[in-house]
Write a protein that binds this DNA or RNA. Structure first.
Ligand SMILES: [Mn+2]
Ligand SMILES: [Mn+2]
Ligand SMILES: [Mn+2]
Ligand SMILES: [Mn+2]
Lengths: 219, 219
DNA sequence: TTATATTTTTAAGCTCGCTTAAATTTATAT
DNA sequence: ATATAAATTTAAGCGAGCTTAAAAATATAA
């Protein structure tokens, strides 16, 4: 295929499928920050090319070809992120945007060599699993969003949404990194925000942010 | 700017300037494998954007802005080539095409980090100098094409044209790499080819190929 | 100088990926 | 069930970057 737009559409579709493996054009448009009309247009092309199942006014599915293509894009993206962060020392809140471009410009050969050079990393710098050459990837760990924790529970940060603008740079400021332990001191009813303790400091985190940070309970 | 086509035009212009720092549209078109009409079109845009001096029917010059942009593209390209070859072990006859894409997808920040990681390489895998952050680059060594050598002279390979299709994979087959010593056993008048000795083997090299391999005489 | 060849530009048209505005279909609420 | 809202598609249009064909300018050769 080799087409930046189509590759980004496929990735966005795959990343935002609902529980039944479908997505509506409207959501796709908003994720891609693009008009609904443009989405309709592109869906016809992706359908024509065999990457999505598309019928007017219906939800969209990926074909199996579309799904492997999308997974391979995630693979490229995440391997680049690991390289940029781990090898070049680029901060984790900057690697996503760079990988967003590099993913379209690198052959599978480069990606495979990079993977080997990095010694087969299993997750990207934000905790997302990296598909292997055959599209197999570890299931996301049984993680929960911070908002799902109860008061007085402790948890370890496992994954952070890398898709939400400015989220990473904000949570970096308040000291959250992968592996960090947090403690839920209080849950505030009226706005859904959470009072958490990190490094002995108390911080109030809005529900919008807390819902994008995924953790594993510590017993 | 951030535009693949325009970036490739600028690089092609810079790489093919004549002795007086100019290039004609026709040559540019053939280097880019594109129609003359398309070149005319793009030259208007590059001129509008301040990267080239362009007047109808005249030879093209780069503005100083155009020149720095072009040199920065060469920098990106060549640093990627070094990384791919040296770090990932990709053969030197494959890195050019890959770098041709990566060069458009990487911020200066990535390039600077890569340069540091690679410990400030001075030449790319084909012997071309790498401009530094300020656009300064070593002059090409005082090299000559193999065709300019005389019979019974010895020389060391310093640089190989990385722009000519299939050249690299061919000369790799006959054993030529950077630093290799060659000996001119004979120059054949009628077709301009050269009989050279590499690793004690005699090989006849056409003038077309020999003219793209640059060497330093050994006394 | 004049004829011919080559280069360059102009003109018209194509696909791609987007836009806004209007029409249509589907979903939601009363 | 009906009215209203939201989602989706259609229609028209735009810029980028190409193409081929024709016209115009420049270079080369006789
Ligand atoms: Mn992308
Ligand atoms: Mn990520
Ligand atoms: Mn390029
Ligand atoms: Mn090179």
């Amino acid at each position: 295929m080799n087409n930046i737009s189509q590759e980004d559409y496929l990735t966005a579709i795959y990343r935002n499928l609902d529980d039944s493996g479908e997505i509506k054009p409207n959501l796709l448009a908003s994720k891609l920050e693009i008009s609904n009309a443009a989405v309709t247009d592109m869906l016809r092309k992706l359908s024509r090319d065999g990457f999505v199942d598309y019928q007017k006014y219906k939800s969209i599915k990926l074909t199996s070809e579309g799904e492997s293509y999308a997974k391979n894009m995630l693979r490229r993206h995440r391997i680049w992120e690991v390289f940029l962060h781990q090898t070049l020392g680029m901060p984790w809140d900057k690697v996503h945007d760079e990988a967003e471009k590099l993913e379209h410009s690198s052959s599978d050969e480069i990606i495979n060599l990079l993977e080997e050079f990095l010694d087969y990393p299993e997750v990207d710098p934000h905790g997302y699993p990296i598909p292997d050459k055959n599209g197999k990837m570890k299931k996301n760990k049984a993680v929960m969003a911070i908002t799902e924790l109860s008061e007085n529970e402790s948890a370890k940060v496992i994954r952070v949404n890398d898709d939400v603008k400015n989220l990473l740079s904000y949570i970096t400021k308040i000291g959250i990194t992968l592996g960090k332990e947090i403690f839920i001191k209080d849950k505030l009813e009226y706005d859904g925000s959470v009072l958490i303790v990190i490094d002995k400091k108390e911080i109030n985190v809005s529900s919008k942010i807390a819902s994008n940070i995924f953790v594993e309970k510590i017993k």
